[in-house]
Amino acid sequence: MTKGWPQWEVFVRSEAGLAHKHVGSLHAADVRMALENARDLYTRRNEGVSIWVVRSEDVHATDPDEAEAFFEPSEDKRYRFPTSYHVPEGVEHL
């Protein structure tokens, strides 16, 4: 029966103010069913106050083969971390 039903990625916001987080995926015929199934599968134990569903095919990911080019260049640039920033003496409200 799921044959032909698209896959959806589910994002749940655990409480107001927090971001929606990816929790898993499911099959559903359309948006309405996807939201209902997400509610029944992923918020049974009071996990959420809001749900997003996105068609899995609409999620675009980086290519693992390109991981070096994408992510390694940031590894040796420690100056991008705030830890290397020294607060000048006498500055109080920072």
Partner: peptide, 12 residues
């Protein structure tokens, strides 16, 4: 149930 999602939904 006909699909896993419905299985959980009916149990709920």
């Amino acid at each position: 149930a006909p699909i896993m999602e419905e299985d959980v939904a009916l149990a709920n």
